[in-house]
Design a protein around this nucleic acid. Structure first.
Length: 857
RNA sequence: GCCGGAGUGGUGGAAUGGCAGACACGCAUGACUCAAAAUCAUGUGGGCGCAAGCCCAUGAGGGUUCGACUCCCUCCUCCGGCACCA
């Protein structure tokens, strides 16, 4: 084989080799780990894509290649790498497209699937194809449903009536996390609030743990910060104010609880404000409010639901006529109703301290309410400034009775005690709204039985129910043996906007028997949020491990199945390296952590953080803007792969900027990579001429560069600094070409190994041509050992000393490593440029061995 | 408004507080060619200078330091996230 290339050096023709190696790798199961026998399991995961009909775009490829390079390094370093692939094809995103083009989502899924897998195969990643699966596969969503029933049985799923986000275009409710700047995450329509009864997952039960665990996981800092903000912990107090002047009621009969993080400012609380929703509740229980107040309450509620009006930041409000007593100073203050108070935060009521809260200040100014300063930033200077906006910082208390002079931080606890308030921790995080009134999703595996509900209404059970021991009366989980609840193929899958799923019109679907009493019962017809599908997929791949043990063989015995796979789960989980987009900071990544904790608490797994290490990749943009269909700047990798080959595109994508930062896709740079690969191609036959044992006198330079390259490429891949790793490979090639006679075959093969993660096909082809002997069984370069560097060769024995005068570069001298300051100084002074600038004797000499000498005059 | 990230040649981008602009793209000139493409060679931040060389330069302005792209403060611009969260 070697002789061949010597006589007729082959040209680099990517399309001739890439498909060949992709096929061969699959046939030889090059990237399939031995799940039970693996000695050093390494789970390398990249967020799986949702198969949009347009196909894989170059941004997906960017992320996948970045993950693959890391995985390939780990594999060559001797790990058993598992790098799965699948499709997140259930859910609104896929369904909306199907609706748009008028094709059934199930049919569209098959089409997209084929196209996606074709494209994913072309990019040259080391995927374990055997374990792939799709979230809409009934075998997959059987598990999704089983997890749902587990959440239900463990008290983490509950049905609640609450004001929820409703997308008028997608005609379904959405979780808080899926509302991006008041808009639907999928279609961009402005979301409105609707009061509906829905299924929720109790993620709030885990709020503190989700927050605290962030400290122990190794994640991109920006994602941790996003999660911290989203969970939004705030510590404060619940304070009770007695109400007076309630029409037709005795004073002191009613009270109002408010939440504040600044109890220290209570002496400055000059009025209270309640949300319009809260006020409406008062009306409902018989409050005789003046007519204008009633009017306001009705209009404010309307405003909140109007997509146009809700954008307004202008605060409106009305005096309720009711007053309250400030428990700190016993002053009588007015109670207002305003839309700037949110109903779902705290108690839906606040104490307004206009001097120390921006919003209260604006409101007080507008309605001429008193502003009383109680925290002074300049204490003990008695004069406090006249405020033209609120002072929200810390200081010392004034006008606060016996607390005068106390630092505000300290006063918080003291005042809580003195007014008999309750210290409380609040989270911004809300429960995860899981129901969707749509068709294309996993049906929620619950059944409602009227007669079982009535049972709850007997006295004994009712007591339990009231104590919170029985939840969701009448609702029963579909037993494991009846899973999956198959999504029927229906003709009319269009969402109606009536608040129910299209499945609610399918009698054969919802009519069923109660698993408990056997009576007539009705299935839940909503489907679950897509994010439930993706919240456990990392386990899903492992459940697929070794194709022969598929869930069908185990029937519906899911728990048993889980246990049967336990060895594999224990061996491979948690995920060693997870890479994905930062846009999932508070969506997928939060939900997955929540489920991970639940699994752990149910003793299904022995870890509570599924992704101890996560890195967010950057965004690939085009002409400074995000790639999107609407802008028409989405790039399909197919054309580029056809023209330049997958290897060139891979390397180009990785070369255009730091992986974690992203970059701008401009195709003029891809040529440089092609040139590089062609030069590597030409170098191999030259290097092959010299065998190891007849080693010529190796010039020191290229060998040094090679070992520096091993070091740099290894470290850079570990740190996801792919752009500089590629630059170093180029430097190495440049050095090799300059000394083409001095390099050996071994040197060239080492360079190939370093190139392998980036350009897997080209590296494989050249490796097989140059390294493999005729008749040998196929052994992929990607399973070869990663090169190690010789420390002696990465360090120099002389160096260029930088010579500065007053910090300005004046020259350099070559001196041996370890030269003393005196000798270095002497060498430096010998330079003409130093002599001209050193007009007077230096006051000070800074000498940094190995680097520079600086004469300060 | 708050919280992140970033601002460096014509372009993408390199630089543990120590040679600013690695590595590429592009461009220019030359070689090869009838010619072009490809390839190879050389040059390529700005200003002054025949040259050696000198000066200026990392969004703007200050500061710390012998020395700042890098650390600190103030401000401007862009990108991303959150947004009346009490």
């Amino acid at each position: 084989m070697k002789r061949n290339i010597l006589s007729r050096p082959p040209r680099y023709l990517p399309h001739k080799i890439e498909e060949k190696w992709q096929r061969r790798w699959r046939r030889h199961k090059t990237y399939e780990p031995d799940f039970l026998g693996a000695k050093k399991p390494f789970y390398n995961l990249m967020m799986f894509p949702y198969p949009s009909a347009e196909g894989l775009h170059v941004g997906n490829m960017y992320a996948f290649v970045g993950s693959d390079i890391y995985g390939r390094l780990k594999r060559m370093q001797g790990n058993d790498v598992f790098q799965p692939i699948g499709l997140d094809g259930f859910g609104i995103h896929s369904e909306n497209y199907a609706l748009k083009i008028g094709r059934h989502p199930a049919d569209q899924a098959r089409i997209s699937e084929k196209n996606f897998y074709r494209q994913l195969g072309m990019i040259g990643n080391g995927f374990a194809w055997n374990e792939r699966w799709e979230t809409y596969d009934p075998e997959y969503y059987e598990w999704t449903q089983w997890i749902f029933t587990q959440l239900f049985k463990n008290g983490l799923a509950c049905r609640k009536k609450a004001p929820v986000n409703w997308c008028p275009s997608c005609k379904t409710v959405l979780a808080d996390e899926q509302v991006i700047q008041e808009k639907c995450e999928r279609c961009g329509s402005i979301v409105i609030k609707k009061e509906l009864e829905q299924w929720f997952f109790r993620i709030t039960k885990y709020a503190e743990r989700l927050l605290k665990n962030l400290d122990k996981i190794d994640w991109s800092e920006r994602v941790k910060i996003a999660q911290r903000n989203w969970i939004g912990k705030s510590e404060g107090a619940q304070i009770t104010f007695q109400l007076v002047d309630v029409p037709g009621q005795e004073n002191g009969k009613h009270s109002l609880k408010i939440f504040t993080t600044r109890p220290d400012t209570i002496f400055g609380a000059t009025f209270l404000v309640i949300s319009p929703e809260r006020a409406k509740l008062w009306l409902d229980i018989g409050w005789q409010a003046p007519e204008d107040v009633q009017k306001y309450i009705a209009s404010a509620a309307h405003r909140r639901n109007d997509p146009e009006e809700k954008k307004s930041v202008e605060k409106t409000g009305v005096f309720s006529g009711v007053s309250a007593i400030n428990p700190a100073n016993k002053e009588k203050i007015s109670v207002w109703i305003s839309d700037y108070v949110l109903d779902n935060v705290g108690t839906g009521a606040i104490m307004a301290v206009p001097a120390h809260d921006e919003r209260d200040f604006v409101f007080a100014k507008k309605y001429g309410l008193p502003i009383k300063m109680v925290v002074c930033p300049h204490y003990p200077t008695p004069t406090c400034p006249v405020l033209d906006n609120a002072y929200t910082g810390e200081g010392h208390l004034v006008a606060s009775g016996k607390f005068d002079g106390m630092p505000s931080e300290k006063a918080r606890a003291e005042i809580i005690k003195s007014v008999g308030a309750k210290p409380i921790t609040q989270y911004r995080l809300r429960d995860w709204l899981i129901s969707r009134q749509r068709y294309w999703g996993a049906p929620i595996p619950l059944i409602f039985c009227d007669s079982c509900k009535i049972e709850v209404e007997n006295e004994k059970l009712l007591k339990k129910y009231n104590k919170g021991e029985i939840e969701n009366p009448g609702w029963i989980a579909v037993p494991d043996k009846d899973l999956p609840v198959r999504l029927p193929r229906i003709k009319d899958f269009r969402p109606e906007g009536t608040g129910v799923s299209p499945l609610a019109a399918v009698k054969s679907f919802y009519q069923t028997r109660c698993p408990k009493c056997g009576g007539k019962a009705r299935r839940e017809t909503d489907v679950s949020d897509t994010f439930l599908d993706s919240a456990w997929y990392y386990i899903g791949y492992l459940l697929q491990a070794k194709n022969e043990v598929r869930s069908t063989e185990y029937g519906s015995a899911n728990l048993k199945m889980f246990r049967a796979k336990n060895k594999i789960l224990q061996k491979w989980l948690p995920v060693d390296m997870y890479i994905g987009g930062a846009e999932h900071s508070v969506l997928h990544l939060l939900y997955t952590r929540f489920l991970g904790m639940a699994f752990h608490d149910w003793c299904l797994t022995d870890f509570d953080e599924p992704f101890p290490r996560f890195r967010a990749h950057g965004l690939l943009i085009k002409d400074g803007a995000k790639m999107s269909k609407s802008k028409g700047n989405v790039i399909n990798p197919d054309d580029y792969i056809r023209a330049y080959g997958a290897d060139a595109l891979r390397m180009y994508l990785m070369f255009l900027g730091p992986f974690e930062q992203g970059g701008d896709f401009r195709d003029d740079g891809i040529k440089g990579i092609t040139r590089f690969l062609e030069r590597v191609w030409k170098l191999m036959p030259i290097a092959a001429r010299i065998k190891k044992n007849e080693k010529r006198e190796m010039t020191k330079e290229p060998q040094k560069v090679l070992h520096q390259t091993i070091k740099k490429v290894t470290e850079d891949i570990e740190g996801l600094q792919y752009n500089t790793a590629i630059a170093q490979l180029m430097i190495c090639l440049n050095a090799f070409e300059e000394n083409a006679d001095g390099i050996t075959r071994e040197d060239a093969l080492t360079l190939l190994k370093l190139l392998a993660p980036f350009a897997p096909h080209a590296a494989e082809e050249l490796w097989q041509l140059s390294a493999a002997k005729k008749g040998d069984a196929f052994r992929s370069i990607h399973l070869e050992a990663w090169p190690r560097y010789d420390k002696r060769l990465t360090t120099e024995d002389t160096y260029e000393l930088i010579v500065q005068v007053n910090g300005k570069l004046r020259g350099r001298v070559e001196i041996p490593v370890g030269t003393t300051q005196t000798d270095a100084e002497q060498a430096a002074r010998a330079l003409d440029s130093v002599r001209t600038h050193l007009i007077s004797p230096p006051k000070k000499i800074i000498f940094i061995p190995g680097r520079l000498i600086n004469f300060v005059v």
